[in-house]
Measured scan of single mutants.
Amino acid sequence: MSIQHFRVALIPFFAAFCLPVFAHPETLVKVKDAEDQLGARVGYIELDLNSGKILESFRPEERFPMMSTFKVLLCGAVLSRVDAGQEQLGRRIHYSQNDLVEYSPVTEKHLTDGMTVRELCSAAITMSDNTAANLLLTTIGGPKELTAFLHNMGDHVTRLDRWEPELNEAIPNDERDTTMPAAMATTLRKLLTGELLTLASRQQLIDWMEADKVAGPLLRSALPAGWFIADKSGAGERGSRGIIAALGPDGKPSRIVVIYTTGSQATMDERNRQIAEIGASLIKHW
């Protein structure tokens, strides 16, 4: 067993022997301040990774656009098919120029040779490549099948209805392509620590998230040296922004954090800054 596999296998073990965790309302004060600064709703939840206990939450059962955070769930569904012998990570998928959609920095470079399922998941999570996500959605049967996968996990809230990039439209009061912070946090925890996926697939999923290259201005910008984070960000229309993450000190994750916002007129930089400040408060009061 590799060191990384050992780390993920012992996530519940280490967490069980940690000192009790206590909620700190100071972080919620910052979440509410972010709402004021952005002029928009902000949803927040913080779960203990081992027990699933909610440590703090704000608007945990209000719907927010998922945006690209759905790509972690998508690759979880792909990995479940791999575990069941219905898919192979090494299978190569070929596609054409007509398949390319807006923001496809990886797939646009491989029109000639195609990409493997493993490479597509890596591109979808680490670079948020939209064509990679659409190609992977095709392998599982489309958005409705991802929703069905989530329902089978016990998540009857999260739903995907459309493809990239239309799913980022974020129309107010439109339930399409949305989740709730509580539902997303619980589902992410199941994917990373539950028995739904094999140990190898859980490790692969967290490795992809740990290698995320496009979430630097968010929670990662607030992390002290030595902290662990595996995350996936999302951005959408109407001032929408979000991030889902597993993080913790001492090089291992111990909490799940989900943050979503929508309806702001603020710039992307300002949305990023507010999420980073929430992260800084979380870490300060850990």
Rank of each mutant, 00 (worst) to 15 (best):
T187N: 07
E166I: 06
I54K: 03
V106S: 06
D99W: 09
A246D: 10
T126F: 02
T187G: 09
L219F: 15
P224D: 08
M67L: 14
I140T: 02
S233E: 15
T193L: 06
E87C: 05
S264R: 00
D177W: 14
R81K: 13
P253C: 09
M115C: 01
D113T: 08
A230N: 09
D129L: 01
G248H: 06
Q37S: 09
K190S: 14
D129H: 01
V42N: 13
T261K: 14
R81S: 06
S104D: 05
P25Q: 01
W227N: 08
N134T: 03
T261H: 14
N168Q: 14
D48V: 11
Q203H: 10
C121A: 00
R159T: 05
Q265V: 13
T193A: 09
N152S: 10
D129P: 02
E108C: 05
A123L: 03
K232M: 15
I275R: 09
A40W: 03
Q86D: 12
Y260D: 10
E35W: 09
E35Q: 01
R273I: 14
R41A: 11
D36S: 12
D250S: 12
T178S: 10
T131M: 08
R41W: 14
G236E: 00
G234N: 05
L146W: 12
I283K: 08
A40Q: 08
T107W: 13
R202Q: 02
I259L: 12
N50T: 09
M127G: 12
R202H: 03
V257W: 14
G114E: 12
D99N: 13
L160F: 05
G226H: 09
L205P: 04
Q88N: 07
A222N: 14
S96W: 03
I243D: 12
E87L: 08
E270D: 14
S68K: 03
G216I: 12
L150N: 02
P217N: 14
G85Y: 11
D33K: 07
S264M: 02
D129Q: 01
P60T: 06
G85K: 11
V117E: 12
I259V: 07
E237C: 10
Y95G: 12
I140F: 12
T193H: 00
L135F: 04
K30C: 13
R41G: 09
D269E: 08
W286P: 05
G239W: 03
K109I: 06
P60G: 08
P181V: 02
L120S: 04
C121Y: 00
E164Y: 00
N272R: 08
N168A: 13
V157H: 14
Y103E: 12
S254T: 08
T112A: 04
D231G: 15
L191S: 14
V214E: 15
D250Y: 09
A280T: 13
R91I: 04
E35L: 11
V258W: 03
T262E: 07
R91M: 09
Q97A: 04
A276P: 11
K190L: 15
R202S: 09
P143Q: 06
C75T: 01
E175V: 04
L199I: 12
E87Y: 10
R118I: 01
S122D: 05
H94N: 11
R63V: 09
R189S: 14
V257E: 14
W227L: 05
E169V: 00
A132M: 02
V82N: 01
K213E: 11
I244Q: 07
P105Y: 07
S96L: 04
R92S: 09
L38Q: 01
D129M: 01
L218D: 15
V257F: 15
V106Y: 05
R241D: 14
P253K: 02
D177K: 11
T27N: 09
L191Y: 13
R91D: 07
K144W: 02
L47E: 01
K53Q: 10
K190H: 12
E210K: 13
V257M: 14
D250F: 14
M209G: 08
N272T: 13
H24Q: 08
E175I: 05
D161Y: 04
G142V: 00
S51P: 01
A34V: 04
P217Y: 12
C75L: 02
W286I: 02
R92C: 11
P25H: 02
V258R: 05
V214K: 15
L111K: 05
N173M: 08
T138V: 07
R255V: 09
G76I: 10
V157L: 13
P249Q: 12
N134S: 01
R220N: 13
L79E: 06
T112H: 02
E145S: 14
S80R: 14
I256K: 14
S51W: 01
C75D: 01
V31S: 13
H110G: 00
L136W: 07
I256M: 12
I275L: 13
K32N: 11
L100Y: 09
K232Y: 12
Q37E: 01
E35M: 08
L247V: 08
T261P: 14
A34Y: 13
M115N: 04
G39R: 06
S233N: 14
L196T: 06
N173Q: 05
G142I: 00
L223F: 15
E277G: 07
I140G: 02
K232S: 12
Y260F: 13
R162P: 01
W163Y: 14
E175Y: 02
M184N: 07
L196M: 08
M180V: 10
M115Q: 03
S221K: 15
M67E: 11
T262G: 09
G194N: 02
A276W: 15
S201W: 00
N50Q: 11
E237Y: 10
R159H: 07
L197K: 00
P165T: 00
V257N: 15
L28H: 09
V78A: 03
C121I: 05
T139P: 03
L89P: 01
D161V: 02
